[in-house]
Simulated scan of single mutants.
Amino acid sequence: MSEWVIAAPSLFAGVFSFDVFSEEPEAIATTVQLMLLLTVLSLAPGILILMTCFTRIVIVLSFVRQGLATQTTPPNQVLIGLALFMTFFIMAPVFSEVYSEAYTPLANGEIEAQEAFESAIVPIKTFMAQHTREKDLALFMGYAGHEKPESLEEVPLSTLVPAFAISELKTAFQIGFLIFVPFLVIDMIVASVLMSMGMMMLPPVMIALPFKVLLFVLVDGWYLVVQSLLISYS
């Protein structure tokens, strides 16, 4: 038993050992690419939420559900899935540029990893800058002590990302307010009618729900909401 305990570590070390500091260029390149892939995958949720249009879309869709007062219909899985695929649809030109300008040259060995990162971040920064308010960007630039940038290349990613995030939040809430207005009018009308009839114990939300769903279906609400989101990024 004691001999097996002593030999076990060396046995498993021999099975699972690999040479990280290989002198072969191909092995080193593969290891670096694998590390970069794992890093990107670990940061993917944050990149998806804060550096794409996902935030605005999912918040607007949530406002639609709250305005309808349908509670869990559509369910969260449907809303997030729709927001995810709309994000891929809107960001497709940006992702294509990143793939052609950064990943393909890196995979072919034409550029280094640092150059690939710098090339990949340009289209993403351009997209974020187009939908970021100057006021929000000036807030983070001033807090970080940076001077007013002359070009987009001078804007640090650490200030552009939060500025883009709060700009997206404001735009999403503005769209959500416009969505809430017609539903609020229906709620007020139903509540007034019920009070005039003396039915104060009857919940107005329950009576207004079918009217709101009917109105939303008649005006083709999902089409209008998605169309508004697509136009906001055109």
Score class of each variant (00 low, 15 high):
residue 112 E to W: 00
residue 113 A to N: 04
residue 113 A to W: 02
residue 114 Q to K: 10
residue 114 Q to L: 13
residue 114 Q to M: 10
residue 116 A to D: 09
residue 116 A to N: 09
residue 118 E to Q: 14
residue 118 E to T: 10
residue 118 E to P: 04
residue 120 A to E: 00
residue 121 I to R: 11
residue 121 I to C: 01
residue 122 V to K: 09
residue 123 P to S: 01
residue 123 P to D: 02
residue 124 I to K: 06
residue 125 K to Y: 02
residue 126 T to K: 08
residue 127 F to E: 02
residue 129 A to T: 05
residue 129 A to G: 04
residue 130 Q to E: 12
residue 130 Q to I: 08
residue 130 Q to P: 04
residue 130 Q to K: 15
residue 131 H to D: 10
residue 132 T to S: 06
residue 132 T to F: 06
residue 133 R to I: 03
residue 133 R to P: 02
residue 133 R to Q: 14
residue 135 K to H: 07
residue 135 K to S: 11
residue 136 D to Q: 06
residue 136 D to W: 03
residue 138 A to E: 09
residue 138 A to C: 00
residue 138 A to L: 01
residue 139 L to I: 02
residue 139 L to G: 00
residue 139 L to W: 01
residue 142 G to I: 02
residue 143 Y to A: 14
residue 143 Y to N: 04
residue 144 A to P: 02
residue 151 S to N: 12
residue 152 L to W: 01
residue 152 L to C: 03
residue 152 L to K: 09
residue 154 E to W: 10
residue 155 V to D: 01
residue 155 V to C: 13
residue 156 P to Y: 05
residue 157 L to Q: 10
residue 157 L to Y: 09
residue 157 L to N: 07
residue 158 S to L: 14
residue 159 T to W: 00
residue 160 L to F: 10
residue 161 V to E: 03
residue 161 V to P: 10
residue 161 V to I: 15
residue 162 P to N: 08
residue 162 P to D: 04
residue 163 A to V: 13
residue 164 F to G: 05
residue 166 I to F: 09
residue 167 S to N: 08
residue 168 E to C: 04
residue 169 L to R: 08
residue 170 K to M: 11
residue 170 K to G: 06
residue 170 K to Y: 07
residue 171 T to Y: 05
residue 172 A to E: 00
residue 173 F to L: 08
residue 173 F to C: 00
residue 174 Q to V: 07
residue 175 I to W: 03
residue 176 G to A: 06
residue 177 F to D: 03
residue 178 L to W: 07
residue 178 L to I: 10
residue 178 L to V: 11
residue 180 F to V: 11
residue 182 P to C: 08
residue 182 P to V: 07
residue 182 P to L: 06
residue 183 F to Q: 02
residue 186 I to P: 05
residue 187 D to K: 03
residue 192 S to I: 12
residue 192 S to A: 15
residue 192 S to G: 11
residue 193 V to H: 03
residue 194 L to I: 01
residue 196 S to Y: 11
residue 196 S to E: 13
residue 197 M to W: 07
residue 198 G to D: 11
residue 198 G to P: 13
residue 199 M to L: 15
residue 199 M to N: 10
residue 199 M to I: 10
residue 200 M to Q: 14
residue 202 L to I: 13
residue 203 P to H: 14
residue 204 P to C: 07
residue 205 V to W: 06
residue 207 I to V: 13
residue 207 I to R: 03
residue 207 I to L: 09
residue 208 A to F: 08
